[in-house]
Design a protein around this nucleic acid. Structure first.
Lengths: 336, 336
DNA sequence: TTGTATGCGTTATCAG
DNA sequence: CTGATAACGCATACAA
C-alpha cells in the first residue's frame, strides 16, 4: 500500500475546513457550497488524491470484490469463462479475486476461508472434481456471502446456478451418433459425482433408450480425473471385442487423446469408430479428422453468473434461480 | 460483506476481557496467559471468528492483494502464467486481483487506476499490444506501488522484468530452419512496437546474418494484432514468387493458420514450406503435421514474477532486476 | 499479563 | 452549508 497517498485529512488541513466537508464535496453531495467544492476538487486533483477503498469498505461493508474459484485457470473452458466474468464485473464496478483449487477439495475449502476473510461481496464457484460434500460452503451461508455456482455445480445445494443443459447436450450428441448409424456407442465419462458428468451420462442413456439401442455397461467408463485418466480407460475400452463403433467423450481433451490413439492403431475415424467431444476447444477444429463436438457458451456463462451474483449482492432475498444455457452441436469429420 | 460476522469485540465482551487481549491471543503473541488464550481461541472457533483483513489492511497498510493485468485471460500462454502466479501467490499468502486489458491501452490505464484505489500491494503487468507509452505506469511510481513486468514488457521502462530470451529463442528457431537447408525464410511477425516482437525479429535477422542468408524485406511481415491479422499477411506472402521455403511465425496460433492455409493449397509441409511456431500451445503437437515450436516456461514466469514482486514489496529499495528465462526448441514434423 | 487510549481513512449523525 | 464526533474492526504504545 502506498504511503505518500493524500487523504481527505490533508485536503481539509490545507483548505482549513473539516474532513466532513471534504468528504461531502468529493462525493458531490447536495449540501455543499459550490465554491468550497471547487476548491476541494482542485486540490484533490493537484494532490492526486484517490479515495481509499479499504477505508470505505470498512464503513460500507462492501468491498466491491467478487471471489472466483475454478478448478484450474489454464483450461480453455475456464479461462474463457473467467474472461467473460472479468468483462462483466468491470461493467458492474467490481474486481475479481481469482483462485484455482487445482481440483483439490481441501484446497477449495481453504480458499473459501481465505476469500471470506477478504470480505468479498460474493463468490462464484465451479467446484473441483473431488468435491463431494457441500460442507465447505456452509461457511458462506453463515457469513451471508452470496454464492453463485457455475458450470460444475453440486446437485443438492440450494443456490443460484448457471449451467449448461448437459443432459440435452449429451442427448443431442449421442442422438447424432445414432443418426449416423452407430449402435455400439461408448461413453468416456468424467468423475461420476460431478453433476455435469451425471447429466451427460443420463443424456447418453436417454438417447440410447429413445432409439432403443441396448445399454452395455462395459461401454461406460468413468475417468476420475478427466483426461488424465483417459488413456488407460481408452486402452481398456479397446481391449474388448467387438470394438465400440462410436465414442462420446466427456471433453475434447479426452476425445483428442482417443483420436490420437485410434490414428496410431490405424483404426479409421469415423468409418470404424466415430468420435464426439465436448467443449469446442480450439484444437477440435484443427485435429485430423476435425472433431465433432459440443460448443459451450463460455463467455455467456461468465456474464450471467456475474449478473446474478451482483443482483443477489444488492438484494439478498432473491430466490435462488438456475439459469440453463444451451449448447451447440458442431458437426465435423470425426462423426460422419 | 457479511453482517453476522463475529469480531474481537464480541469475543472480548463474552469473555469479559479487553479487545487488546483478544487481539494478542488470536495472534499468538508472547505475553498472554495460556489459559486466557485457550479461552479466546475456543470461543473464536465456536463463533466461527475470522479476522477482518480489511480492518487489518487499514492499519498495516498492506492488503496482501497483488494486481495482475494481462492483455487477455483466455490465451494458452497467459492462462498458464496466471495459474503459475496463483500458486506462487498462495504460497506467499497473497491473493490475485486479475484483470484483462483486452489489448486496449486506455483500458489498461483505467485498470491501473482502479487497482491503485484497491490499494494493491504490488502489480504484475504484461502490456497490451497497443501500449506505446509508459505514462500510465507513472501513477504507480508516484504511489510507490511496486510493479513487475512479465512476458510483454516496455523496453524503456526502469522496472523489474521477467521475460523470455526472445532474441535467442528466435535465433535458435531460425538457425534450425537454416540447418534444415532453408534459404528463403519468411517471418510472420507481431506488433512491431512490442519488445517481444522486436526481439524475435532481431533474433531472426541475426541468424540470417550469421549464416550469410540474404535478408529479403518482402519476407518480413508484421501482424498488428497477432493471429487476427495473420491470414491477410499470409495471403500477401504467398502471392509472391518465388514462395518462401520456410516461415517463422510469431506464435503457434499464426503458424496453425498458416499450416491450414498451406494444407488447403496443397503445399507440402515441410518439403515445400517448413513452418515453425512459438509458444508450444497444446495444439502444436496435435496438428498435422505436428508443429515445430518454441516452448515457453509459463509457470516459471508466473512463479518468478510473483517472487520478485513480493521481495520488492518487502524491500522497496531492491534494484530492478531483469530475469531472462530460456525457452526450448521442440522439433516436430513441420520443419524436417 | 492485561487494560486503556489512540489511530488507520472514511462516512454518518448530529448540532450549529 | 459546515464542523465536531463517533464509528467501522483491528493493532499497538503505554500504563497498570
Amino acid at each position: 500500500m502506498s504511503k505518500q497517498q493524500a487523504t481527505i485529512k490533508d485536503i481539509a488541513r490545507k483548505l482549513r475546513i473539516s474532513v466532513s466537508t471534504v468528504s461531502r464535496a468529493l462525493r458531490n453531495l447536495h449540501d455543499v457550497n459550490p465554491e468550497t467544492r471547487k476548491n476541494v476538487l482542485e486540490l484533490a486533483k493537484q494532490l492526486n488524491y484517490e479515495p481509499n477503498y479499504i477505508a470505505q469498505s470498512l464503513i460500507n461493508k462492501k468491498t466491491r470484490i467478487i471471489g472466483v474459484i475454478v478448478p484450474v485457470i489454464a483450461s480453455s473452458v475456464f479461462s474463457r469463462i473467467l474472461a467473460g466474468m472479468n468483462d462483466a464485473a468491470q461493467k458492474h464496478g467490481y474486481q475479481l479475486m481469482i483462485c484455482q483449487s487445482n481440483e483439490n477439495a481441501e484446497h477449495e475449502a481453504e480458499l473459501i476461508r481465505q476469500l471470506a476473510s477478504f470480505k468479498i461481496d460474493g463468490l462464484l464457484v465451479s467446484v473441483s472434481g473431488q468435491t463431494k460434500h457441500e460442507e465447505a460452503f456452509d461457511l458462506l451461508k453463515q457469513k451471508e456471502i452470496p454464492v453463485v455456482f457455475f458450470d460444475r455445480v453440486l446437485p443438492n445445494i440450494e443456490a443460484p446456478k448457471v449451467i449448461v443443459d448437459e443432459f440435452q447436450s449429451a442427448f443431442t450428441a449421442v442422438e447424432h451418433l445414432i443418426n449416423c448409424g452407430h449402435k455400439r456407442i461408448a461413453h468416456l465419462g468424467g468423475p461420476p459425482h460431478l453433476s455435469i458428468c451425471k447429466d451427460r451420462l443420463n443424456g447418453y442413456l436417454a438417447a440410447l433408450k429413445k432409439y432403443k439401442v441396448p445399454v452395455n455397461k462395459k461401454l461406460i467408463l468413468s475417468c476420475e480425473n478427466f483426461e488424465d485418466d483417459a488413456l488407460k480407460n481408452i486402452q481398456r475400452l479397446f481391449s474388448q471385442k467387438p470394438f465400440p463403433d462410436a465414442v462420446f467423450a466427456i471433453n475434447d481433451a479426452s476425445a483428442i487423446i482417443l483420436i490420437k490413439y485410434l490414428n496410431k492403431k490405424g483404426i479409421k475415424i469415423p468409418e470404424e469408430v466415430a468420435v464426439i467431444g465436448f467443449n469446442n476447444d480450439h484444437i477440435s477444429e484443427i485435429i485430423e479428422p476435425a472433431l465433432t463436438t459440443i460448443m459451450l457458451p463460455c463467455a455467456d456463462i461468465g456474464h450471467i453468473a456475474v449478473d446474478i451474483l451482483v443482483r443477489r449482492i444488492n438484494d439478498p432475498n432473491q430466490l435462488p434461480q438456475t439459469v440453463t444455457l444451451h449448447s451447440n452441436l458442431i458437426i465435423r469429420d470425426s462423426s460422419q
